[in-house]
Amino acid sequence: MRALPQKLVRSNEFYLFLVIVVLAIVIQARSGQFFTANNLVDIANAMVVPGIFAVGAFMVLVSGGIDVSFPALASLAVYATTRILVDAGYEGDLWLPFLIVMAIGAVLGSLNGWFASRFAVPVLIITLGTASVFSGIMQGALGSVQIPNIPPAMSEFGRATLFVATNPDSGLTSNMPMSFLLLVGVVVAAFVMLRYTTFGRGIYALGGDESAASRAGFNVRRMKFWLYVIVGVIASIAGLVRTSMMDQMHPTNLLGMELMVIAAVVLGGTAITGGTGTLTGAMLGTLLIVIVQNSMILVGVPTFWQGFALGVLIIVGTGISALQLTRARKRKTALI
């Protein structure tokens, strides 16, 4: 076994961590506002929804696919849930909204899963299609409009805080949302699944070599199906959290997030070709992007530069891993 420090230095996550630390120090030096209690809590707050999405996007990437339908899936699931509950005048506990949204998420995910497991079409194409179908159903068939009053249980959940952080200088306060625990819970559950179940290891195997996976005895079709069901459930949870935290159902609010989330996961060292990557990396990648989005204002960078900075990050981040790959290949061919 390799020594731990050496392993650490060779890992992608380590460098990502360094980048985050450097970025934090730069922001701190320029603004003096980064390492303040309320800014850190704000970042944690902003991480919840993209973080949960990232877990799902990560699993699909590891399996060798790319899913771009999760924001549309989440929007439709939450819209339908909210509509049903509001129309029924539901005043009860939180478990029912969660149950309904996860059930709808599972059904929508199974649609992705059914196509992905039956047809030899890239998942990217399938989910581009289903994404349009999902938002089409929401905006057309269900005639989506903004729902200003969401069920009280969701509203309460959105306001629930773990603690309040106060900036001693400015007196600004930020709430640590209860939903952060949900992010932690999803990450832990995904970690356990990916590391300690045959299904989870199978997802890695699938991303490594699909035909080898089926020769090894994995039921590739069934695995793909259930993977997309799980991803659908995870996405719908993220959607419910976002709606609860906004205290209203805004149907198109989530749309367009897919590229940012996928970028975060890839930045975290997950190979776009499948098979490699860690949840830690995916979370660090999300953290980096959230910091860039949230903190550039602190250093006085106009918001429209955010897109630019994100783009540069993605190119540099993926460029480095591409470079490592070509170097490793060169080393191999040099021997021949």
């Binding site: 890695y204 490594g208 070599d209 080898a212 090894a216 490699t276």
Partner: peptide, 11 residues
């Protein structure tokens, strides 16, 4: 044992 060995390169 297939020609490509059917191994998982990433594991």
């Amino acid at each position: 044992i297939y020609q490509d060995f059917s191994v998982f390169p990433n594991l």
